[in-house]
């Protein structure tokens, strides 16, 4: 049976009816049209569906939408502002850290969460901070350069 939940996504409050077996990834993508969050496996192995849930990055394919009642969710769509791309997004464009782009939204969310918590990560900490986000295109080199360029 559907249940109404209230969840804050990218600073907007959504009151929405969800099925118990619906994942957060599917809610975002198919009900709310927030298709920036990608699905590359649906079993928590690739990180393409990474969102920030109550301050921590998670695989949204392994979170039930119904569990996010009262939660705060940040997705890739919430990063850019009217002024333009978020600096991390700029860095990904600038450094050539994006190829096919399918891992990029999740990768950028992990990068943001990492830098939110640790403004000056070492290279090893950057590698750890994206270790659940698989990228088949770039070899991670330019991704790490992009994140490194955003240290303070």
């Amino acid at each position: 049976m559907k249940k109404i939940i209230s969840v804050t996504i990218n600073n907007e409050i959504y009151e929405i009816a969800v099925e118990p077996n619906q994942t957060l990834a599917d809610l975002l993508r198919y009900d709310l049209g927030l298709t920036g969050t990608k699905k590359g496996c649906d079993t928590g192995d690739c990180g393409a569906c990474t969102v920030i849930l109550d301050g921590d990055v998670v695989n949204s394919c392994l979170v039930l939408a119904i569990q996010t009642d009262g939660s705060v969710v940040d997705t890739i769509e919430g990063l850019a502002t009217e002024e333009g791309l978020h600096p991390i997004q700029e860095a990904f464009v600038e450094k050539g850290a994006i190829q096919c782009g399918y891992c990029s939204p999740g990768m950028i969310m992990s990068a943001k969460n990492l830098l939110d918590k640790n403004t000056n990560p070492t290279e090893q900490e950057i590698r750890e901070g994206i270790s659940g986000n698989l990228c088949r295109c770039t070899g991670y080199q330019k991704i790490i350069e992009a994140i490194d360029s955003q240290k303070s």
Binding site: G44, G47, T50, D56, V57, V58, N59, L62, V63, S110, E128, G129, I130, S131, G132, N133
Partner: peptide, 9 residues
């Protein structure tokens, strides 16, 4: 265990 995403859950 796993990776940074899995460890958060």
């Amino acid at each position: 265990l796993g990776n940074h995403l899995i460890r958060n859950k």
